Computed example of a mutant assay.
Amino acid sequence: MVTLDFRTLTVPVGIVRMLEVIFTCISFSLVASVGHRTEPFWTWCMFTWCFCFCITILILVLEFTSLKSKLPISWDDFTTAFAMLATLMVLAASVIYPDSFACSTCSKQIGATVTSCVAFILYAIEVGLTRAKPGEISGFLSSVPGLLKVLEAFVACIIFICLGDYNYAQYPGLQWCVAVYSICFIFALIVILFTIGRLLSLFPGPFNKILIGCNVLAVLMYATAVVVWPLYSFKNNPRPNNCSQVVACTWNKLVVVSFMTCFNLVAYIVDTVYSFKLVFFVSTT
């Protein structure tokens, strides 16, 4: 039997989610009113706003009707992971869209950028509201290591997008870097999906210990990619003179990959240190 829970709409996280729906809707409506474009990054921005809008409405409806208890998933892990993912996606859209498509006289594009930035702030607030507090019992994705897993997977997706039209097969070193990105992404995705699906018991051993081992391995692999990727991708490849737009030029995409590789290395280091602290220090006190 479906019961309506009005309290879910009046608590802080419910109010924030309703505002997210409003501002993401305004963002894609303003952009759509300007006209359709075929550029991949325009499609990415529109997908981001529409995706976040739809999933946030779905979460509101499921919580309002109490149907979330009928789903065979860890609801808190799902909502926290989505809030983190939406924060990163909307942040990327808020940077990419004005850089590529807005101008000083484009009022609708500027308006869409502003509402997108507000939506990013709202999703960041939701992450803060749903994140596990110290000493609180919650799901893995509500903890700092869980949120870092979502961050690591998202950064890997950005790397894959930038690699879309680049021939990395010309050097074995670049192939190794792509293998690093792929292996680490697959493991992060498995952890996220298994956590949401309550399937962590299927791991062949203590989950925390396996997670630490894979994080250490990811740090070592990413440490090699930080050196190898720029060494081979920029070898005999100076910046073209016509490479003016940040996201449209292939050479600039290689710079983005280099930066994101360093960023993910730092994320995996923080993830490893935090996981070590939780397993070997907090659990023994």
Rank of each mutant, 00 (worst) to 15 (best):
C50L: 14
C50P: 06
C50D: 06
C50G: 11
F51N: 02
F51Y: 12
C52P: 03
F53Q: 09
F53N: 07
F53A: 05
F53W: 14
C54I: 08
I55D: 01
T56N: 00
I57S: 01
I57P: 04
I57C: 09
L58H: 07
I59C: 02
I59Q: 13
I59Y: 08
L60A: 03
L60D: 10
L62T: 14
E63G: 04
E63Q: 15
F64R: 01
F64D: 02
F64T: 13
S66T: 11
S66M: 12
L67I: 10
L67R: 10
K68M: 12
K68L: 14
K68D: 14
K68Q: 15
S69F: 09
S69L: 11
K70Y: 15
K70A: 15
K70C: 04
L71I: 13
L71G: 07
I73G: 10
W75N: 13
D76K: 15
D77F: 04
D77H: 03
D77L: 03
D77N: 14
F78P: 04
T79K: 14
T79F: 05
T80I: 01
T80E: 05
T80F: 08
T80S: 13
A81R: 02
A81S: 12
F82I: 10
M84T: 13
L85R: 00
A86H: 04
T87D: 02
T87W: 08
L88Y: 00
L88M: 10
L88C: 06
